[in-house]
Amino acid sequence: MFTLLDLMQPSTIDEAYQLLMAKRNNTVLGGCAFLRLGSSRIGTGIELSKLPLDYIMEQEDYIEIGAMTTFRELETSTVLKQYFNGILPQAVSNIIGVQFRNVVTVGASVFSRYGFSDLITALLTLDTEVELYKGGRMPLAEFLVKKYEKDLLTRVFIKKEQRIASYQNMRNSASDFPLVNVAVSCYQNQWRIVAGATPAPAKIAKRASLLLEKNLAIDDAADLAVEELVFGSNARATAEYRKAICKVLIKRGIEEVLQWR
């Protein structure tokens, strides 16, 4: 369990950012689900539920999601069910249980770039941008490889387009962490294959995605994807196992997208 020396509930985003930067061990508290499994000593915990960041809003060109939106809100959102074959509600639907998803937040999951994340994998196959209070707005792909800097993730933007998307994952049991997960999408013949829980954070298989654009050879694309992606071993699965499963999931993802196209 972590310990807090102090706890603040700022009422503006600027105030939250100033608090965060005031001391090295000041920390933003999201849903706390991951944080509480560790034992960090936090100076001031910055609790964000007083900020108006808990919403999913459909704008003209984007779907905007506030950082304090819970996974359950993503799962049940009528807006998100309508777009991209409901990939976002589907991707988060197997994370522990309803009562857990009513707690954990979008901002904390994306900002923390968890290797086991289901959400990041699904977001990365869409045209997603994140907004950081200091760092500004940038594509999710850029944020995921950026050097870590203390900041406050405020909003996630997903471009509204007729993108067809599919989410695939392998778990030992329904509510467990994914052993590996995959998201595949296609928009105007531009494909994007993503794999996560490798167990590193999600990455786009760029060469395989390009290959699909030129030539719809599903097996070749899946082979190339697992060659260009890097797999690792941990207590859940070995690199070899992940690679073998990932290949199958990518094929299924591509086939599903083709079915819906």
């Binding site: 706890l7 509930q9 508290l29 849903g31 706390c32 689900a33 509480r36 499994l37 915990g45 609790e47 539920s49 359950r72 522990i96 249980g97 309803v98 009562q99 857990f100 009513n102 707690v103 509510s175």
Partner: peptide, 26 residues
């Protein structure tokens, strides 16, 4: 006590919530 079992469920604003995983201040 690791947010996996559901035994501590209460309703917070009508939503079933793991009370072992919600900071009291929230």
């Amino acid at each position: 006590n690791t947010a996996c079992c559901g035994l501590c469920t209460v309703w917070l604003e009508g939503k079933p919530t793991l009370s072992c995983n919600i900071l009291a201040i929230r």
